[in-house]
Amino acid sequence: MNLIANILTFLIISLVTGLGSAWYLVNSGPDFTAVSEGPWETWNRVGRTIADPYTRAHITRSGRLPVMSKSLLYFTTVHDSAGRKIDAECDYTIIGDDPRGKWWSIAAYDGAGNLMTNPAARHAFNASNVLRDPVGRYKIAISRYPTPGNWLPVDSEYQVRLILRLHMHATETRTADTTYGLPEIRRVLCR
C-alpha cells in the first residue's frame, strides 16, 4: 500500500510540476523574456536565432512566422487596461496617440488566431487608415454592434485577442525598460 502511494505521489508531482510549469511558461512567458506595457505583452526575443527555449517553443506552438523583434514588435492582449478579460459581450475603446516606431496596426482575432467574420469586413486599423481627432489622438471602438468612427467588430462566440504590430527603426536602441506609448483599452459598457 505504501509503495503504491509513493509511486503515485512521485508520478503526480513530477508530471504536474514538469508539464504544468512548461505549459504555463510557454503560454505566458517567464519574466526574463515576456515584457508588458499596460495590458499589452510582448516576447522580446521573438523570431531571433538567439531566442531562449521558451520563446522558441511559444512561437513554434503558435504556428506563427514572426519577424525578428529588432524590426517589428508584436504586442498581444486578451485583457483591458483594468486587467479584466476582454469580453465580446461588452464594448471597449482603444484610445491613444501614435506609439513609437514607423508604423502600427491593431487587429482583432479569435483565440485560435483567426480573423472573425463581420458585416463590415473590418479586421484592423493602422497608422494609415485610422480616423483621428484634431490633436491626432485616435479612438477605436471594439464592439459587436455598429459604432460611429473607427469600429473594429468582434464576434461574441469567440475569445477576443488583440495584436498590435509596431514596425520599428532597426537602428533604434531599446532596453527592457523602454516604453512605446501603447494605447489604453477601456471598457465602456456590457450589454
Partner: peptide, 25 residues
C-alpha cells in the same frame, strides 16, 4: 525525487516542443 524528475520533464518538454509541434508554421 518527484520534484527533481519534474524539473527534468520540464527541460525536456521545453527543448523538444519546437521539434514535435504539429502547429509548426
Amino acid at each position: 525525487a518527484g520534484l527533481i524528475f519534474g524539473v527534468i520533464i520540464h527541460i525536456t518538454a521545453i527543448f523538444a516542443l519546437p521539434y514535435m509541434s504539429e502547429n509548426n508554421a
